[in-house]
Write a protein that binds this DNA or RNA. Structure first.
Lengths: 202, 202, 202, 202
DNA sequence: CATGAATGAGTATTCATTCAT
DNA sequence: TATGAATGAATACTCATTCAT
């Protein structure tokens, strides 16, 4: 019985995070009201405050969960790959698959609302983002060193790739022509080989 | 005297747009209040309403101006270039230079707040964005047809490039290691030739 | 075991009264929340409601206990004194010693929050206060009649004394220069003999 | 016309202060809501915020005005009196007359709500209170030195007097038996000459 | 005896907007 | 063209209290 109670609580918490993520996604953090969220949950505004401390805490919890998700589903699975090309390809595809197939609202929230977070919360999320950027930079450096990649600036390459991938949520619709897997392949192809046929043309 | 009055009015309008763009940029559209804007302008809130009809109108005016700017500074200058590779290169570099050197707040607002616009305003801005996307797609199609580019999906290529470029405002700081021109060159290099040394490796 | 249970309950009740008195004292009745009290007690808000019926009841219970305390420690001990001057002196000193040495939060609550009580509760506390005022008036009347005191208005004298004494909680700090006993002596001296050297000077 | 506007504004400000003082007096600061005040003024809650910055600011403004009032009506008029006995008598009577005849709600608010103020506001009001206490202490010291008063502790005498006088708002009703002037005389009599007929009796 | 969850009413405050002047 | 005053609706959040477990 106690277990049930605890489980219910977890469920409520998760329900709130999920619903809030959806609504923050649709209306933006500032555009969404606690009333929107409580209404979507079918409880009162006051009821929500049994489970969270403030709207900003809620946002952080969502982002933190989104980070967990990303790290669990992507980062953790690719960090150990020793071959840098395999590592990069797995990262790129994994990242794209997560944002196109699972489409976790939490990650959209991270991408779109990160600047509303202040103070320690902001720092914590930013630190986790930077960790990912550094992982990408390291991978590009490995690729250049191993002679597989051209002499690209690792930082430039990292942000080029991040831009391509993080922008997906702005335009990609799963109902469209391309599946997530197809997009992943296509983006990997463009990013790795470039647009042009012959390097000499550049 | 009449001319002066009209000029002053134009000036006020421009002042308001510029100031509001800066503030929407800093705090987001929903996070910014008309009071923030009027305070930054040194006039009263009521005073602003002599020049604009509503906060949403103001946002639209900013975005519209941002679009004008982009089209004048980038699109118009490259649309006429007949060689598709030159056209693409000029577009890519022009676009990046605009967002790294001029850094117009209006364009950041377009990128970050477009989903708060509703109805006809939304459609109008979206139509202009789509026009740019179609222009890019046409360019990639031309490149493939002319045998200069590999067989890439034009839509995929367009959004890959847009992602890289539109994400820049999220991380690029002019005080950093790279100048706008250097970033433009580096991104063009990565995008056109890809990361890898040998196409066979992909 | 029953005895133990009852004792525990009494203990809990007393704990709640004491803690609530302290918190009402610090933050005022309206400024304090049931959450403040429950947190200070280490139980839940709901837990408190097993021992009290409402916040107002709790306030009344505190005041009532404060009154009990005062009547037990002061009034009861001096009412029987037949010599009016001894009676007055004992009352004055006893009252001051209670508020300076024991410093019961309950009495501060009575002095500071009495107007928030309504209805029957208010009447009950007010009645006990009036009883004390009438006791003082009677004592002054006795003093005048017996020729020991000058022809002072008993009501005026009673409220002059009450003001001096009831104001103490606003400024007196036990860490200061005067002990409670010293303050009691000093106040008694001032009140009984006045400020001036020679009555003629007044 | 501009003058009228400014005058109106002053009037509104004064209206708000006065009304809020009355309501804080009746219900206490925490017990009173901004809605109570706005309703009493016949404007909306939002309307009030054109004239004040916050509820706490409003409280400070009331207390500050109460202090102005007291200093103007009492302190300023008596500070210059060179004879200490005259000075004390004028202070005592002036103070009592102010709280019994004018009965400014602002002074009651100062006496009852001062502990809700925090930070700089609290310090400012406290400093003005201390200034009055020091003035009283100086006066008592002068009286003792000049041989007019008995050897009383100036601090004790000051707080004895303050208690008598500051407690008046708790019990005095102008509809009662005593006029303010009569109470002033009676309190002065009790305080200066004491209760007892013969000093030897103490 | 105690809890976690919930609620309805209420809190101070902010908002975009209007309007008489 | 600008202002000060005002408003109605909304904001995030808190409150005392209840109740099933």
């Amino acid at each position: 019985m106690k277990k049930r109670a605890r489980q219910d609580r977890v469920t409520r918490q998760a329900q709130i995070l999920e619903t809030a993520a959806r609504i923050f996604c649709d209306k933006g953090f500032e555009g969404a009201s606690m009333g929107d969220i409580s209404a979507a949950l079918g409880i009162t505004k006051a009821g929500i405050y049994h489970h969270i401390r403030s709207k900003e805490d809620l946002l952080y919890a969502i982002m933190s969960y989104g980070m967990d998700l990303f790290e669990r589903k992507v980062l953790r699975r690719v960090m150990g790959i020793s071959d840098p090309l395999e590592r990069l390809r797995a990262t790129l595809k994994g990242h794209i698959l997560v944002v196109t197939r699972d489409r976790p609202k939490e990650i959209t929230v991270i991408l779109h609302e990160s600047s509303v977070l202040k103070g320690r919360y902001r720092e914590k999320i930013d630190a986790r983002k930077r960790r990912y950027v550094r992982f990408l930079e390291r991978t590009f450096r490995d690729l250049v060193r191993s002679g597989v990649a051209r002499r690209v600036d690792p930082t430039v390459a990292a942000f080029a790739m991040l831009g391509m991938v993080n922008w997906i949520y702005q335009w990609y619709r799963p109902a469209g022509r391309l599946s997530g897997a197809e997009l992943a392949d296509a983006f990997a192809d463009v990013f790795l080989k470039g647009i042009l046929k012959s390097p000499a043309a550049g």
